[in-house]
Simulated assay, not measured.
Amino acid sequence: MEEHFVWVTTRRLQPSSLEEFEHAWRPAPYPQGMHRAYAYWSEDGEEITGVSFWESKEACDSWRASEPETRRRAAMAPYVVEEWEGFYRGRELGVPQRQ
């Protein structure tokens, strides 16, 4: 089975700031070593979870220590009330087909 390297970050946002936050959230340049990324938000738009898949932990750590990521975090900061994150290794779970 293919192993994945995943960085998950959840942020509680200021009320009514999701749209502005999303503009600040987009990385530029796109991180080297990131395969794909997803965003999931609560119905009220006050909590957002980002899930990104990386080629390795080192690639993720390199991005997290980079100047573009520092600037991106500074741009997001006015909209963030609370933040927590973690780096994980895992694999896709096989879901049985329904008949």
Rank of each mutant, 00 (worst) to 15 (best):
G50M: 09
P68I: 11
W7C: 07
E85Q: 07
P27K: 08
E47H: 04
S66T: 04
K57S: 05
E20R: 04
M76F: 06
S16T: 10
W41V: 13
P31R: 12
H35R: 14
A77V: 13
A77C: 06
D44K: 07
F53I: 13
A39K: 12
E82N: 10
E67H: 13
W7I: 04
S42M: 12
R91D: 00
T49N: 01
F53A: 02
S42F: 12
Q14W: 03
V80N: 00
E43R: 08
E22G: 01
G86R: 05
R26G: 05
P29M: 05
L18A: 14
E83C: 10
S17Y: 00
H35D: 10
E85H: 14
F5E: 03
W7K: 02
S16K: 07
A74Q: 14
E67L: 13
R26F: 08
P96V: 14
W7Q: 04
V51H: 03
M34G: 04
G94H: 15
P27W: 07
T10H: 01
A39G: 11
L13Y: 01
V81R: 02
T9E: 00
V80C: 06
A65D: 13
E82H: 06
T70H: 10
R98D: 06
D61K: 01
I48P: 00
E20N: 06
A24N: 09
T9F: 07
S16L: 09
T9R: 09
P27H: 08
A28R: 13
W7T: 09
Q14F: 06
G45S: 06
Q99L: 13
R11G: 00
R98Q: 06
F5S: 06
F5L: 10
E2M: 13
E55T: 10
W84L: 03
R73D: 06
A37T: 14
F87M: 11
R72N: 07
A39I: 15
E92Y: 12
Y40S: 02
E83H: 00
E46A: 08
P78T: 12
W63Q: 00
W41Y: 14
S56Y: 03
G94C: 06
F21Y: 15
R71H: 14
P15N: 03
H23V: 07
E58N: 05
E83I: 15
E82A: 15
M1Q: 07
K57H: 08
Q99Y: 11
A65F: 02
Y40F: 15
E58A: 15
G86C: 07
S42Y: 11
P31F: 03
R12K: 10
R71N: 04
R64Q: 12
E69S: 13
I48D: 05
S42A: 15
V51T: 07
R89G: 13
M76P: 02
L93H: 07
P15G: 10
S66M: 06
V81P: 00
G33N: 04
L93K: 08
R91A: 13
S17F: 09
A28M: 13
H35A: 09
S17M: 09
W25C: 02
A65L: 09
S66H: 12
A74P: 01
Y38K: 02
G90P: 01
G45R: 03
R11D: 04
G86Q: 07
A37D: 04
R89W: 04
E58V: 10
H35T: 08
W7M: 02
P68H: 11
E43A: 15
E47W: 04
A37C: 12
M34I: 05
E85W: 09
Q14L: 15
E69C: 12
F87A: 08
E46C: 14
